[in-house]
Design a protein around this nucleic acid. Structure first.
Lengths: 241, 241
DNA sequence: AAGTGGTCTAGACCACCAA
DNA sequence: TGGTGGTCTAGACCACTTA
């Protein structure tokens, strides 16, 4: 049993214990946590305090709660992960998402550049895997992706039989790494030769460039991803509040 | 005193009552709400139920709570509104925002186009005010904005002595309209003649186009805004989670 | 019928703030 | 010193799921 150190509010301490256990894989995705009563008894706090911690976990999408059933570790199913992190939508539809397909990916191993190492908070010249693929929307190439992950976190990722449409479900199911947040920086660029070949677009097409750093539950920076999107038929949709 | 109709959870009903009162201006921005105890007594529910409703309001930025002081209606101060809705940041700084200046604006009255009326949920050919201005970042023109608001919601907005850098604080303080969420659609475009003249950029520069619909507390669609951003020195930064 | 989370209440103590 | 929100507890009842 964990002995809860003092300092912070009880519910926050409970929250931290639960985050750590989930990050360590004590309960795997799609499995249920103990009931509120059981956790309260184990951690020697009241059920209300456990509830507050669980509600906070649910608010951050780390768990899902279902009345009458229990509390489950959030699972990055294909659809779920897609709708969370793939934000392309049809214009003027209040953000109705489109579902992409992925072309077969090309992988290679190399050393991280200084910029990549910096963004991933890794030492210079770390071994990484680079994945390149094209995503199609309604059959038309629309996004080229260049993904960089540390080899150490994802050994043999480049030798996986088939990479799924949503890599994050693979990260979670095979490597036990759950992506919880992503920091993105968007800018507009002009297509280069490579874009034009991959996406079948004319020279000089404007593209939406999305630089993403994906961060796992424990705070580990797990992935770098640069997407270059042809936004003639789709837009990047978000709600600010 | 409001009589709370049945149906929904109590705390949700309390939440709705409070939202309505805030939207109606029962408590003005920066004013404090009654204490939890007072609200509980008035609405005939327990303090815990009021607390749950207030916490929900705080989570949505409609109120701010301060231990020992009270609960205050959120105020769209210049800085606050800026950091909430102006998402341009320096690249690779973990989203550290930049503060823009605004050029003097040009206003005109006209009829809404069909597309504008549709996005604002207004009948066709409604009277609107169109505002155009340039925003400078570190003294350099970086964003051109075209803002469209219904004349009915903002009478004489075009005759205001000076439009502030953040219009949303004006909407709130003068017209009692608090913007709570904004739906944005981002895409990449090539600059046109007008962009090139306003922003002082070369022909063919890629721009980040941001289409925004701003929605007020009651759900009223209050503003349409199209921003065209030169993203050579800044990026649009967000956290997805 | 038993077990789960969802809601609601009541009361206690604390930390913080202002007069 | 009195009032506020922040935390924590304990217990009740309900709605839902599963067996």
């Amino acid at each position: 049993m964990d002995v809860i150190p003092d300092f912070q509010p009880l519910y926050k301490q409970v929250y931290d214990v639960l985050v750590r256990r989930i990050a360590e894989g004590a309960w795997l995705p799609a499995q249920s946590l103990p009931s509120e009563q059981a956790l309260a008894a184990e951690l020697r706090v009241s059920q209300g305090t456990v509830r507050k911690a669980l509600d906070a976990l649910a608010a951050e999408n780390l768990v899902q709660r279902h009345q009458g059933k229990g509390t489950y570790v959030a699972e990055h199913t294909q659809e779920h992960a897609l709708f969370r992190f793939f934000r392309l939508a049809k214009p003027n539809t209040d953000g109705e998402r489109v579902t992409p397909e992925s072309s077969t990916a090309r992988c290679k191993r190399r050393l991280a550049t200084a910029a990549e190492a910096g963004k991933l908070h890794l030492p210079k010249s770390t071994n990484v895997i680079e994945i390149r693929r094209i995503r199609l929307i309604e059959g038309v190439p629309a996004v080229s992706e260049r993904i960089v992950v540390p080899l150490k976190l994802f050994p043999e990722l480049d030798h996986q039989p088939a990479l799924p449409n949503t890599l994050y479900s693979l990260y979670q199911s095979v490597y036990g790494i759950s992506i919880s947040v992503a920091k993105e920086e968007l800018s507009a660029v002009i297509s280069n030769k490579s874009d034009e070949k991959e996406l079948g677009i004319k020279p000089g097409t404007p593209l939406l460039k999305v630089d993403r750093v994906a961060i796992a539950i424990g705070g580990q920076r797990a992935e770098l991803r640069v997407s270059r999107c042809d936004t003639r038929n789709v837009v990047y949709a978000i709600d600010v509040n």
